[in-house]
């Protein structure tokens, strides 16, 4: 398409030039660049330079941040090497540091968030695009977006004051009683802080992101396709399951991964409700810490330079996880879009 338009444009130029040759009208002059005003040329050049610098600044900044983190984490790296990743203890007193409890905490809290938010967010998006009456769409849609606007520290406070006590007094004891035999629903904490609470707070943060992306995705599914499905005598649900969801599955996966990225990196709200702990436990109601919450909670009070460096090592791990997650989302979108050939 682009080359076609270019060729057409060139053809127009050539036609203009040729038309100009036999006649004596002064239309040949504007084709020469010399006639352009100096100001225009300077403006073009300045625009290109400024925008290029802005783009370059992003690359430089990214590089500088990565470099600094790796640099500061170096002493922990030279002390523990890769063993740091699998070491289970974090003991500032005896200067023994390992990342596994935090990797575990990050994985569990994010997994909880992902498992709960996926059906919730997809459901919300389907409701808003396919089923809700027109008036409801706009209102509920904006409310969902506003959920994302709540500052995470405020959400964390709400977690401490409302969600935690509710979970500790009602939901967690009930789950422990009914499903305790599975092993993951152990004895609840009295305060209501723990991995599960952190997971729920993360869910609240992830849902608006995933829901609004999914909503965009579902709106992009051509009405033709959905009509084609309904014209076969299928119900709305059959249409959604057979056409809408399959056509958008790569986008949904990417949206979930973006949400996951948000959950992995969230620090403040998680620090507020996760309880803080360095033990790896299979009880999701127990306290823990994530990579991000550990850094947020401990950096100010780090007792030794090795602890500080170890915290930055945690930061480097978080950075790598974040980059990988982002990359995976991009690959999924590019590789596995079933609608791609239609575009």
């Amino acid at each position: 398409m682009v080359t076609g338009a270019g060729a057409r444009l060139r053809a127009v130029y050539v036609a203009c030039a040729m038309a100009a040759v036999p006649t004596t009208t002064p239309t040949t002059a504007p084709l020469r660049s010399g006639r352009r005003r100096i100001g225009d040329r300077v403006g073009d050049g300045a625009l290109r330079t400024i925008t290029a610098l802005a783009a370059l600044a992003v690359v430089v900044l990214l590089g500088a941040i990565v470099y600094k983190i790796l640099h500061l984490a170096h002493s922990a790296w030279s002390t523990y090497g890769l063993h740091f990743v699998t070491a289970k203890t974090w003991d500032p007193v005896h200067k023994a540091f390992g990342a596994l409890p935090f990797i575990y905490g990050t994985a569990i809290s994010s997994l909880i968030a992902l498992l709960i938010s996926a059906p919730l967010a997809i459901g919300i998006a389907l409701y808003l695009t396919e089923l809700a009456p027109k008036g409801v769409r706009g209102v509920v849609g904006s409310l969902i977006e506003m959920l994302a606007a709540i500052p995470s520290v405020v959400l964390g406070l709400w977690g401490i004051l409302v969600l935690g006590p509710f979970l500790a007094n009602h939901l967690e004891p009930w789950l422990h009683r009914k499903l305790g035999f599975i092993g993951i629903f152990g004895a609840p904490e009295a305060t209501g802080t723990g991995l599960f609470t952190a997971g729920l707070i993360l869910t609240i943060m992830v849902v608006p992101i995933v829901a609004s992306i999914c909503r965009e995705l579902f709106m992009q599914v051509p009405a033709d396709l959905e009509e084609g499905a309904l014209a076969l005598g299928t119900t709305r649900w059959e249409m959604i399951r057979g056409v809408t969801l399959p056509a958008t599955r790569s986008g949904i996966a990417a949206a979930l991964i973006l949400g996951l990225g948000r959950a992995l990196g969230e620090a403040i709200a998680v620090t507020q409700v996760i309880g803080g702990g360095t033990r790896i436990t299979n009880n999701v109601f127990g306290p823990g810490d994530t990579l991000a919450s550990k850094i947020a909670a401990s950096y100010q009070g780090a007792a030794s330079s090795l602890e500080q460096s170890s915290l930055l090592y945690l930061g480097a791990l978080l950075l790598i996880i974040g980059l990988v997650v982002n990359l995976v989302a991009q690959v999924i979108v590019r590789r596995f879009d079933p609608l791609r050939e239609a575009r």
Binding site: A231, G233, T235, P246
Partner: peptide
């Protein structure tokens, strides 16, 4: 839904599903 099951429709713009040829017919 039952009406459309007995009275099929073909639209102005071809609108095959983004599935395989087989699955388009078999769905």
């Amino acid at each position: 839904v039952e009406v459309r099951r007995r009275i099929g429709m073909v639209f102005q713009r071809p609108n095959p599903f983004p599935k395989s040829i087989y699955d388009n017919v078999a769905w």
